[in-house]
Design a binder for these strands. Structure first.
Lengths: 198, 198
DNA sequence: ACGGAACTGGGACGGCCGTCCCAGTTCGTC
DNA sequence: GACGAACTGGGACGGCCGTCCCAGTTCCGT
């Protein structure tokens, strides 16, 4: 391996780690598998990261950012609030279909963080970021549709994240686009009814 | 360990395994941890099960049955369809709060099965069972409320399972009862609107 | 150009893993 | 009571794991 600073190595290892997790799961993401994917030697891993767990922590934090950005740009749809939200779900479903392993990896990272008490805050932070993103999107959607939310937007955003999660997991199990779209429709329906026309 | 037939040992090991998974996750459920929990010797495990994976397969299949039964009996609620469904969700939330580790274990088992292609059908079977149960409950609820489903019940059931999953995962992350109830309300709202009054 | 800091590769360590083996014990059956 | 089948405990196997060590190499500031 040509010479590389620890600062450059860290993101390279995280990219490699994400590919390994997508392919083989967290349990398959051994330090050896990760450095092999990155084409580095084992020592480089522990030179760049204190431990495997610290590595996974940083990977999780890093990757959530990209996760939300992948769904952007929000679809510009004419129609009422319900249609705008449904279009957002459908865009997410496209993203899911395009790279299922990535979403599966995110779910695994969440569960891994949920497992140990000291890592729980990491899962919370991950989901707070999802919710923030959802909140932003919902605010924008309500503005476009000229309505306002009856409940606090943060609450609506929480519901949106929950529904997205459930739809994701069920699609990963059944790979049933029709069922996923039906759920997306129902979810959009429920969410849009949490708003009043102004 | 006093003498025990392999036929008796299998359920005992599965009980122990479920406890270990709830406590330490699948990765913590080593053959040694499981037999320690069951108070057996290591050889007994491989006398009763061909391999650890075969054990996990049987555990998954066994435990899904109990999962659905834990939510029974369905609440007998007076009110329209929406109220009946919401009461069902709230009952499930109680179950979740009472034993979060169990639900977390179920999610882990699902993801573990999703990981490898030859085990994927196991996850599908698990979710088909959930859906069957949901279908039964939804049919009963519609009868009680005197309405009929506009879409096929199986489709509505799929949406219900997806929403439940999402609510579960988000509650496991945030432990936020208020948010979970808000999501349950929204979900009940969406589901009830998939029915027409007769 | 040289010295110290940054980085590299390879090998080693102890530990846990799933699985297997096998000599012993206990049981049901005749 | 004998005999074969069912079951048990303990130890062993090779393999992968995370982490560490260290002698060597490369870089950069002076």
């Amino acid at each position: 391996m040509s010479r590389m600073s620890a600062a450059e190595r860290r993101p390279a290892l995280i990219e490699a780690g994400l590919r390994v997790i997508a392919r083989a799961g967290i349990s398959g993401a051994s330090t050896r598998a990760i450095v092999a994917e990155a084409g580095m030697s084992l020592a480089s891993f522990h030179y760049a990261f204190e431990s495997r767990e610290a590595f996974l922590d940083e990977l999780t934090a890093t990757v959530v950012v990209r996760e939300t950005q992948a769904v952007l740009p929000l679809p510009e749809v004419d129609g009422d609030l319900r249609d705008v939200i449904e279009a957002g779900f459908l865009r997410y479903l496209e993203h899911l279909r395009a790279d299922p392993a990535h979403e599966q990896a995110m779910l695994e990272l969440t569960q891994h963080a949920l497992r140990e008490p000291e890592r729980h805050p990491l899962a919370v932070a991950q989901y707070r970021r999802y919710a923030d993103f959802a909140e932003e999107a919902l605010t924008l959607a309500a503005e476009r549709a000229g309505v306002s939310w009856r409940s606090p937007v943060s609450e609506v955003a929480g519901v949106l994240v929950a529904f997205s999660d459930g739809i994701t997991l069920n699609w990963l199990v059944h790979r049933d686009d029709h069922a996923a779209r039906a759920a997306a429709r129902a979810a959009a329906d429920a969410l849009s009814r949490m708003a009043d026309s102004q």
